[in-house]
Amino acid sequence: MIHNTTYEAARSVAATVETHFAKHHAAAHQDNKEKLAPAPSAQIIEVIVDTTFWASLLREEGHSPKISLAFIPPEQSEQPLLFEHRFPFTPSILTKLAPAVERPGIHIGVWHEEDELYVWGATRVIPHLCFVLEVVEPGLLVIKHRRVDEFGKFANVAVLNGEQVKVVDENSASLPNCPSILTSLLGFSSPSSWNYSVNESVNVLIQLAVSMRDHGRGGSLLVVPSGTKTWRKSIIHPISYSVAPAFSGLADLMRQDVSIRNQSQWQGALRQAVGSIAGLTAVDGATVINDQHELLAFGAKIGRPEGSTPVQKIIVTEPIINGEAAIVHPSQNGGTRHMSAAQFVQDQQDAIALVASQDGRFTIFAWSPCEEMVHAHRVETLLL
């Protein structure tokens, strides 16, 4: 394939991404998984990333493109939108098509014939482990794939932001004290092993995290054990917006029979319920839910219980290759939201705190018994 790559990050990440897809395809074949998308070669990955990067910097009628590309032949897509004549895979073509496919869930179909890539149309349905490249904003690209288990958001492989490249470290899932939500984001959760109290809750937390990040106003979500009021010792009273009895809209949806969860009506109701709770996190103060998804309060101000000591240090990690753990004072990790979330988790060690920053950063705070301190997991790379 003849192509003059001018975006250096495309060349540097291609071989790593090829290895990732080859490994997961081999594992899926061993498990007798069907309907797998073709695994892309390093050369194809390099060309797709390079071309799409330059497309992301162009503008069409004053707007920057937001597009998602899927590398699959048209025959592997269900009910594809097929162009009568294929188009060359160029930045200008991608930019012109962007307004038609910028809604979530629509992918531009890209395939190759001999030594040429081409655009064949668009699709909403893609096979397992399909290579997807998404343009989030100018110069910011995310390489991801559809999970084999068909559940939850796509698994991110790498994030390219200009010259900066972050490759997700899948081994982070095997580290001690890795929160279940992080394990799921990394793609290591199997629906066959999921139960209501842990893993279905995890998937809802992921959707809440994505929605919190998307509203762009910043916010805090505290997840506390059900059946206890110990968390109230870490909240300043009176609580601005205490909810009694607990609001169970989201919880009621998750208690419904699994057989109806593929129905569009149920999925639409879930998106609305998740969006409603995520929206509450934009209110000054923290939103509090329990591990059964019941809303307990919002606009809550976090304080220290009597006899509690101020949090002095936390460990900060990011699940990317070559990412190094750092032990810092919580003020070095963020502002007031981060400080108060770290304090809450230190005092309520059976709870977790999810904090979205206005600049797009997202942190999961959880207690680490091994380190005997609060562990701040930076996960915005996984949420894009």
Score class of each variant (00 low, 15 high):
residue 95 T to S: 10
residue 60 E to D: 10
residue 95 T to Y: 06
residue 75 E to I: 09
residue 115 D to H: 11
residue 128 H to Y: 10
residue 89 F to E: 07
residue 83 F to P: 02
residue 136 V to F: 04
residue 46 E to P: 02
residue 170 E to P: 01
residue 108 I to Q: 09
residue 105 G to K: 11
residue 123 T to H: 05
residue 60 E to C: 05
residue 161 N to C: 02
residue 156 N to M: 08
residue 146 R to Y: 08
residue 114 E to R: 10
residue 128 H to K: 15
residue 106 I to N: 08
residue 64 S to K: 04
residue 169 D to S: 05
residue 168 V to Q: 01
residue 145 H to K: 09
residue 83 F to W: 13
residue 70 A to R: 14
residue 60 E to K: 02
residue 97 L to M: 14
residue 164 Q to L: 10
residue 105 G to D: 05
residue 110 V to D: 05
residue 173 A to F: 01
residue 146 R to N: 11
residue 78 E to H: 12
residue 84 E to D: 10
residue 51 T to W: 03
residue 144 K to E: 12
residue 89 F to C: 06
residue 90 T to V: 15
residue 139 G to M: 11
residue 98 A to C: 11
residue 95 T to C: 15
residue 161 N to P: 00
residue 103 R to P: 00
residue 152 G to S: 08
residue 51 T to N: 07
residue 61 E to T: 07
residue 103 R to H: 11
residue 126 I to A: 10
residue 48 I to D: 00
residue 150 E to Y: 09
residue 137 E to N: 01
residue 132 V to A: 10
residue 47 V to L: 02
residue 82 L to S: 09
residue 151 F to S: 08
residue 61 E to I: 02
residue 150 E to Q: 13
residue 57 L to V: 04
residue 153 K to L: 08
residue 82 L to A: 08
residue 171 N to P: 00
residue 67 I to C: 02
residue 59 R to T: 14
residue 118 Y to D: 08
residue 123 T to P: 03
residue 127 P to H: 14
residue 110 V to G: 08
residue 138 P to V: 07
residue 153 K to H: 04
residue 48 I to N: 03
residue 140 L to N: 02
residue 156 N to Y: 00
residue 92 S to L: 15
residue 136 V to G: 00
residue 138 P to N: 12
residue 117 L to I: 07
residue 87 F to H: 15
residue 159 V to K: 07
residue 108 I to L: 15
residue 164 Q to G: 01
residue 48 I to G: 01
residue 46 E to D: 04
residue 163 E to W: 03
residue 109 G to W: 10
residue 52 T to C: 11
residue 86 R to H: 13
residue 91 P to W: 13
residue 153 K to T: 05
residue 90 T to A: 08
residue 76 Q to M: 15
residue 90 T to C: 05
residue 129 L to E: 12
residue 161 N to I: 00
residue 62 G to Y: 06
residue 131 F to A: 09
residue 140 L to R: 13
residue 131 F to T: 03
residue 164 Q to A: 10
residue 103 R to Q: 14
residue 77 S to T: 14
residue 46 E to A: 12
residue 115 D to T: 07
residue 74 P to Q: 15
residue 86 R to I: 12
residue 110 V to H: 08
residue 169 D to G: 02
residue 87 F to A: 14
residue 76 Q to V: 06
residue 85 H to Q: 15
residue 105 G to Y: 11
residue 126 I to D: 04
residue 82 L to F: 07
residue 65 P to N: 07
residue 50 D to M: 03
residue 140 L to P: 00
residue 102 E to R: 14
residue 150 E to V: 06
residue 155 A to S: 11
residue 99 P to K: 04
residue 119 V to L: 12
residue 167 V to Q: 06
residue 151 F to R: 13
residue 158 A to W: 00
residue 134 E to M: 09
residue 87 F to P: 04
residue 107 H to T: 14
residue 47 V to D: 00
residue 126 I to N: 06
residue 58 L to P: 01
residue 111 W to K: 03
residue 108 I to D: 04
residue 159 V to G: 04
residue 139 G to P: 02
residue 151 F to K: 04
residue 149 D to C: 13
residue 50 D to C: 06
residue 171 N to G: 02
residue 76 Q to G: 15
residue 110 V to K: 08
residue 138 P to E: 13
residue 92 S to R: 14
residue 111 W to Y: 09
residue 48 I to H: 02
residue 93 I to C: 07
residue 156 N to S: 15
residue 52 T to S: 09
residue 111 W to S: 12
residue 119 V to Y: 06
residue 46 E to V: 00
residue 102 E to G: 01
residue 114 E to Q: 15
residue 110 V to L: 12
residue 118 Y to H: 11
residue 146 R to E: 08
residue 45 I to F: 01
residue 141 L to S: 03
residue 60 E to F: 07
residue 131 F to K: 03
